[in-house]
C-alpha cells in the first residue's frame, strides 16, 4: 500500500505543475455556477414556489456546486491509458513489481485531489456570495468529504476501465462521453434525483452513477445519518464490484499482451 501512497504523492506534485490548467478549471467553475444561479433563479421565479421537489433555491444551487466540484475534479486517466495501450507502452510497465490498474487509480486520485480542493473552494465562494448563505451543515460537509472521496475512487475505477477498453476498441472517447452524460443525467449532476418522475427514480437509485454525483451533494445539503450510511454501503459495494471487473479485464489484457505483444 505504501507504494501506491507514493504514487498519489507524486501525482499530486505533477498536477501542481499544471497550474494554468487548474486555474482554468476554476474559471469554468465560476462560469457554470453563474449559469446555474441565473437559470434556477429564473425557474423559481416562474414557478412562484419556494421549494421544488423539496429543494429551496439556495439548496439546489449548493447541490449543483457540490456535483460540479466532483465532476470537474474527476479522472481523465483514460486518455493516458488508451494512448499508452495504442502505443504499446503498457507492456513495459509489467517489469515493475506493481499492479498497473492500481497504479493508475492511485495516479488518478493524486491528480484529482488538488483540483478537488480548488474547485470546492471556488464553487463555495461563488455560490456563497451569489446566494448569501450556506445551505449545508458541518456534519453535511464531513459526510460530503467522505462520500466524495469514495465517489472519486469509483470514478477512477470507471476511468481505468474505459482506458483499458482501448485493448479491444479503436476509440474510447465515445465510451467516456456516454459515461459522462450518464453522470449528467441519471447520476444527478444537473438535477437532484428528487426531481425525476417516480418510476425513473426507482430505476436510477440502483445504478452506480448516482453514487458519484447525487449522493455526496445530497449528503451536504440535507444531512441525514441513515441516508449517508446507506449510501456509503452502496458506494463500497460498487467499488468492490468495479474493482473486480477491472481486475478481470486487466487479467485478459495482460494475457493478450504477453501472448500477442500488445
Amino acid at each position: 500500500m505504501i507504494r501506491y501512497a507514493a504514487v498519489v504523492t507524486v501525482a499530486i506534485r505533477q498536477q501542481l505543475a499544471y497550474r494554468a490548467e487548474i486555474v482554468m478549471r476554476a474559471v469554468s467553475m465560476v462560469l457554470f455556477m453563474g449559469v446555474f444561479m441565473a437559470l434556477w433563479s429564473s425557474a423559481y421565479g416562474v414557478s412562484g414556489q419556494a421549494e421544488l421537489a423539496g429543494y429551496s433555491l439556495a439548496e439546489i444551487v449548493w447541490y449543483l456546486a457540490m456535483t460540479e466540484t466532483i465532476t470537474l475534479s474527476s479522472s481523465r486517466v483514460f486518455v493516458e491509458i488508451s494512448e499508452a495501450v495504442k502505443a504499446g507502452d503498457v507492456a513495459y510497465t509489467l517489469t515493475r513489481p506493481l499492479s498497473y490498474p492500481l497504479y493508475q487509480v492511485a495516479y488518478s486520485l493524486g491528480g484529482s485531489l488538488p483540483r478537488f480542493a480548488l474547485n470546492l473552494l471556488t464553487a463555495s465562494l461563488v455560490v456563497g456570495l451569489g446566494m448569501g448563505r450556506i445551505a449545508g451543515s458541518a456534519a453535511g460537509l464531513a459526510a460530503f468529504l467522505v462520500t466524495a472521496a469514495l465517489a472519486l475512487v469509483l470514478d477512477a475505477l470507471v476511468a481505468v476501465l474505459i482506458g483499458l477498453a482501448a485493448f479491444w476498441i479503436e476509440e474510447v472517447m465515445p465510451a467516456y462521453w456516454i459515461y459522462q452524460k450518464l453522470l449528467f443525467t441519471v447520476g444527478g449532476l444537473f438535477l437532484p434525483l428528487e426531481m425525476f418522475p417516480g418510476w425513473l427514480r426507482g430505476v436510477v437509485r440502483w445504478l452506480p452513477f448516482q453514487f458519484i454525483s447525487y449522493v455526496p451533494a445530497r449528503a451536504f445539503v440535507a444531512f441525514e445519518p441513515a441516508f449517508v450510511l446507506q449510501s456509503i454501503a452502496g458506494q463500497v459495494a460498487y467499488i468492490t464490484l468495479f474493482a473486480a471487473v477491472v481486475a478481470l479485464v486487466w487479467h485478459r489484457a495482460q494475457r493478450r499482451m504477453v501472448l500477442h505483444g500488445g
Partner: peptide, 13 residues
Amino acid sequence: LQVVGMLLNDLML
C-alpha cells in the same frame, strides 16, 4: 462509433 457516441451524448443533454 464516434458519430453515434456523439449523437447519444447530445441527446442526453
